[in-house]
Design a protein around this nucleic acid. Structure first.
Lengths: 229, 229
DNA sequence: ACCTGAACACCGTTCAAGT
DNA sequence: ACCTGAACACCGTTCAAGT
């Protein structure tokens, strides 16, 4: 009498949400190349065509999975913090999220102007307004921060995906790269060669935050010169 | 007596250089998806296997093509300029190069720690040294600039590739996006929604340069506080 | 309305075979 | 040493057919 088997409680019918959830799981486990329609249909115990009834194409799916992670991350931000430290917190939470889901770093940059990027831009913008940047400058300032954050994200994502592919841990990956750098030609690459030794020691996360502070510093001297006019 | 047919003068035997040249042409003409081994073998009038004798795999090929464009770009820089304006010139030349070859923007970020990125990092680093940033700070400062530049590049590349796919010109692409933004929910996206109107008017290239200046500004106040200690 | 799964066109890569 | 090109394993996407 009951509508078919009530055996399995929830995970019954297909939905965009379930598809995205499964996609995130695949991406987290096997990296960017782990998301295929075959793996996905197996995971969801369905056919490829079924998935296409709920989503447009793979690119939309990837962006949606990315957006889910970003949205969750932004929801964890503590409200009401002073602007500068709110921006720092935003940046760090994003850094950690992308560190945990490297594929997000590359997915986000494939869909500029889409929801994930807009969400971040909006957050930055709100804090920029609170910092009292003159209206004509808000756009540039917000996008500078946005671009910096996304640049770090993408590069970091690529790094950890390469490390994952060659199944190296972070430390030995950095050591290898440091050695390569220190063998560069002294005439053509004096800076990189000399600084190579510092590579393994550095804390990416901390460097990232210093970069944010550098930009914030630039912004505040911009504000000073604005108000002088 | 002459070694084989001397009919066609140059483009005789296959070489890594010729393969890279043909790859750049394909990428420029058809975008990222234009580079396939089939298109490439046709262009070079050879078989897929022949290409594999000269290169490792597609990823190496893409990085090599990217590096070629980057190397040419960096060769065009005017030597001996004062550090700050040298950094600005470097940034602008890169911006224009990636604008002309959008695929470079995404390729460069797929190969961090590889030659293209190292080249740029080295240039930035040399100028940073000249600007007299304390040695302990050079790494962070150089990578902040690097990350910002690459962030802009990648995002811009993605934008123009989307525009190219939908075969829109830049203006109508921006106008469409601006309209979408202005229809966002006022409560969730006040900043983006209000600033939407400014989108089509803005000059990405100029904004990019202002961002560079913002970071340079931050660096110089860092130097002041350094010397105060 | 929602799902099945075979079929299609297209990839990167390999490799026995040629010169 | 260098090249040929068929073959392999694997994609994203479509679509007639089912419920």
């Amino acid at each position: 009498m009951a509508k078919k088997a009530k055996a399995q409680p929830q995970e019954k019918s297909l939905s965009k949400e379930r598809i995205i959830e499964a996609s995130i799981a695949l991406l987290d486990e096997h990296g960017e190349s782990g998301l295929t329609f075959r793996a996905l249909s197996e995971e969801l115990a369905t056919g490829a065509g079924a998935i296409y009834w709920h989503i447009e194409n793979k690119s939309e799916l990837l962006t949606a999975a990315c957006d889910e992670v970003i949205a969750r991350t932004l929801n964890m931000l503590t409200p009401g913090a002073p602007p500068a430290s709110a921006i720092r917190e935003l940046a760090l939470k994003l850094f950690d999220a992308i560190d945990a889901h490297p594929w997000v770093g590359s997915a986000i940059i494939l869909a500029p102007g889409e929801k994930p990027v807009i969400r971040i831009f909006e957050q930055i913008g709100q804090h920029i307004q609170a910092i009292e940047v003159s209206e004509g400058r808000q756009w540039v300032v917000a996008s500078t921060l946005l671009h910096y954050i996304l640049g770090v994200s993408a590069l970091n994502a690529a790094n950890s995906q390469i490390a994952q592919q060659r199944s190296l841990e972070r430390t030995s990956f950095l050591t290898t790269m440091s050695q390569q750098w220190s063998q560069l030609d002294q005439h053509k690459y004096p800076f990189t060669r000399n600084i190579a030794g510092q590579l393994p020691a550095h804390d990416d996360r901390e460097d990232f935050l210093i970069g944010i502070d550098l930009i914030l510093e630039g912004i505040s001297s911009l504000r000073i010169s604005d108000s002088e006019e």
